[in-house]
Design a protein around this nucleic acid. Structure first.
Lengths: 217, 217
DNA sequence: ATTCCTCTATTTGTATACAAAGATGGCCTA
DNA sequence: TAGGCCATCTTTGTATACAAATAGAGGAAT
């Protein structure tokens, strides 16, 4: 058990991303430590790591709180995602192998099948969100730019971004799936401008869905 | 003295960025601690923070080393900078006030004056590099996107990027200054496409200078 | 009653101690 | 002599102890 710090980091992180901890909740080192049965040292390390990723805010001598995002933050995040992920598409298109295209097509199939099932939203949406993440990650992976991947990751480490599908209307969901399909088609055709453009539209459309929901609150 | 960790973080960071520590040098916590007259705890915190920024690599149970960058890394970094900084220009152009434009023009004046002086390179280049950083930072500031600023910062926290001017030929330096001037002209004209295009060219030109130098080694 | 101040309790920041994992070097064997 | 194994030594990871700083409550003065 050589890395308690990493374990507790993961635990706190998933707790934040799932929304379990939210509302700028205070994260007291000692409390977390005793509740996990460990000392403050690894808890502290985990919190600083989360702070570096922007998931928690730390003030000197005043401790850590779960970070909060307002509409302006979300706009920034989706704008940057639209730029960076479309760039990933551009890089990925000439590099994608037939197998990788097939992999992406397969995810499209699975997501479309999931969308058609009669399962309740509570079951369907997490599954769709998971496939969605795999789809986007795969394109970034194909783009072969590790730093690009890191930049995008820091942007999507935000609860509401991780759960975008939860706020989607049925029409928005269908449009999203059509975007995925079109991105793969464009990549298959070797047209990186097409692929990048659809990806940009895809993320900007998501922005409007999320912002509309968020501002209405 | 409530923040030893921040102080030592700055010290190690500037040591790395200045090239004082380099060549994947090992950073032993205890050694740093005794040489600074403090305990390992704040040293450790500083190292983890630097690791999160990508300035050092840490392996579990094996400590920290100064990070290294190869030509592929540099290509990635400059490509992403070209995209993000041109986006910053695009956002900044419609927002820039007359005073901000004047500020940027003033930096152009100062840099051109510096370039003309008969000072030795050792004196001139650091001054130019400092002004250059201010120029780019100012545009990011005007763009009013804090996250964009953070993303760009993580990219330029790399020694060779900080010292780009050191590898510039006289022609490249002159071109760089003309780019700056043209960016301000475009922003003044309210033409964000023009401004963004020049910025993109500006960073991509820098990429070729640095890569040409680096690959030749 | 309100404001300001002080005192205390809580919480973070740093130091030190100890445990565990890696690296190093010498010795033994083939 | 080369290669592998064991012991030791170094270095990191975690726990605990202590110091410094902040927040909050309560009381005094106006």
């Amino acid at each position: 058990m050589a890395k308690i710090a990493s374990t507790v980091y993961e635990q706190i992180r998933t707790a934040i991303l799932s929304g379990e901890l939210s509302n700028s909740e205070r994260l007291v080192e000692e409390d977390l430590a005793v509740s996990l049965g460990i000392s403050r040292t690894p808890v502290r390390e985990a919190l600083r790591r989360l702070a570096a990723e922007g998931l928690v805010d730390v003030s000197p001598n005043r401790g850590a709180r779960v970070a909060e995002w307002d509409a302006h933050d979300l706009r920034e995040i989706f704008d940057l995602r639209s730029i960076l992920e479309s760039h990933a598409c551009e890089l990925a298109t000439p590099r994608a192998s037939a197998a990788e295209i097939a992999f992406l097509e397969n995810i499209c199939d699975e997501m479309e099948a999931l969308a058609k099932t009669e399962l309740s939203s509570e079951q369907r949406l997490p599954a769709l969100a998971a496939k969605n993440r795999i789809f986007h990650s795969k394109i970034i992976e194909i783009s072969n730019s590790s730093r690009l991947g890191l930049l995008i990751e820091t942007l999507i480490h935000v609860p509401i971004v991780m759960q975008t599908y939860k706020v989607y209307s049925p029409e928005a969901l269908e449009r999203s799936l059509r975007h995925h399909r079109e991105i793969v088609t464009a990549m298959k055709a070797g047209d990186e401008v097409w692929a990048a453009s659809v990806m940009r539209a895809h993320v900007l459309a998501a922005r409007e869905e999320v912002l509309g929901q968020n501002e209405a609150e």
